[in-house]
Design a protein around this nucleic acid. Structure first.
Lengths: 155, 155
DNA sequence: AATTCTTTGACTAATATTGACTTTAATTAT
DNA sequence: ATAATTAAAGTCAATATTAGTCAAAGAATT
């Protein structure tokens, strides 16, 4: 417990609030001031400790009245399939492989027919085409991973 | 819930009225006075929060007895909603506008909460980012249109 | 010694607020 | 009737107020 750098302290501070609340809404500069660090360190703490893998989602808004909101989400129990699918996708994902993944999701009752349609529309070749099949496969991988991560929790 | 910016407060004020009425008719300077802001801020609020994507149409008149009227738009059926949303998307689509669209889909019972999450994941900034914000907005427009088109016949 | 993690700050991006100037419509004066 | 005045709303660019990114420097760990 005594091994604490400032990022750890900030993490602990936020998680203590999250122990009693579903979410924290902060003003970045305030927290930075509280711990006497530069504002961007708050981003560092968030990026390293409040990821979706840890069960947190983060929203923010800039400008007057801006904020950062961290929300704890409930990760589902049976997400092994999702996790292994995420792990299996590398940087690129072919159309064919993406269809296999969607089929797997459907077979495992992780998505319904309608959701199959939506996901296939989201990664549709024409939609994400960039005149560069390499880029298209990268884009497809990114989108698929983002969706799989979303399926890992419910709100 | 405190600490919202004034534009959010004005938005909320108007939407509360619109919850009970089909339309609001305001005198710009009055609302500005009520919230102690400059009159043109009312235009800012309207332009950013009461767009057609949001499901509102706005009419106004200048000169003596001038006014601004905000009206909830009433589209006949789901296809109308989808068509008008598709029409409103050009080549590019900002994050903000995309969120408005998804909200409108939800408000019109065209998608459920879970589908909101999936769609937002599909167009998430980090997912479709290619280190080029121009391309990001183009990609977001393409994906959103693809999904909207899917919803058009999958229902 | 090498690698990874943390801290810092300069620069960028998004959103909100303000105010000077313009346009339109109604009212009043000629 | 027509012109002048007044009373609105609209536009747009400048400024203010946040948060985000990224890379370099420093610290800790392996």
């Amino acid at each position: 417990m005594a091994d604490e750098n400032i990022s750890d302290l900030i993490e602990r501070y936020l998680k203590e609030i999250l122990a009693d609340n579903e979410q924290v809404k902060i003003r970045r500069s305030e927290i930075a001031g509280l711990f006497d660090v530069v504002p961007s360190q708050i981003n560092y703490v968030i990026n390293t400790r409040f990821t979706i893998q840890n069960g947190y989602i983060v929203e923010s808004k800039r400008g007057g009245g801006g904020y950062i909101r961290i929300e704890k989400v409930h990760l589902l129990d049976d997400i092994d399939v999702l996790n292994s699918l995420i792990d299996a996708i590398g940087n690129r994902l072919s159309k064919r492989d993406s269809e296999t993944i969607v089929q797997t999701l459907y077979n495992n009752d992780l998505i319904n027919r309608r959701e199959v349609g939506i996901i296939l529309a989201a990664i549709d070749k024409d939609a994400i085409d960039l005149n560069n099949s390499d880029l298209t496969d990268i884009m497809r991988a990114n989108i698929m991973i983002s969706i799989l991560n979303r399926l890992r929790y419910e709100r």
